[in-house]
Amino acid sequence: MTFESPHIRVKDLNVHIGGNHILKNINIDIPDKKLTSFIGPSGCGKTTLLKTFNRLLDRNKDVQIDGQVLVDGENIYGKDIEVTSMRQKMGLLSQRPFPLPMSIYDNIAYGPRLHGTTKKKELDVLVEHYLTATGLWDEVKDRLNGSAARLSIGQQQRLCLARGLAVEPEIILGDEPTSALDPISTQKIEELFLQLKDKYTLVLVTHILRQARRLSDYIAFLYMGEIIEFGPTEDILLRPKEKLTQEYVKGYIS
């Protein structure tokens, strides 16, 4: 299934890691300002696919990436691409939250400072804005200079989201961002994702089918490094065309 002007377009992507063919002939369009989920059994390549989007994958040795990933029509594996500014367009939320080793305030201010905002007043505004946007402001406003490592893990994950939003990305990549969280924190993150859909393009890797159903507009099902089926959420979960998808959705394979 294709879109007219997708935010990300993957063309004939093949990834080999240490001689293993991890992703096979991937072609997929990620629509603008929608939430697209990658589902599939563990080891199917969904996280690898996500990491090709901001080129975090090619920091490892023995990784060979062929094909194209076009973001806003520009191939991020092209020769003249500036990886640093390209990555800035994409926020990343990893499986476990990793606050930077500094205070809550500095965590949020880190990105803006890098990109040229240095005035204390402007930073104050930004910090309050993004902490409010992730529902953290009331919880942490009295200890902005406290260590980020002292927050609960759910708060840390929301802090990481706020930190990512503060560099004004266009795309947010979530790599099973709730897998380390308790149910209540998970719910908060999910609510945030639903709110963010208006402004950002979201790509979510998840192995929880119910989560994919609650959040996504589109779902891609991956199996053994291939995209088996891609379509609107209802179609994939309720009326899958492929036999493998049916079996996965019913829980026969996992």
Binding site: E82, T84, S85, L114, H115, G116
Partner: peptide, 11 residues
């Protein structure tokens, strides 16, 4: 700090 200087520092 401008983007170019940051890249320069990096290189």
């Amino acid at each position: 700090m401008s983007y170019k200087i940051r890249l320069l520092k990096d290189r």
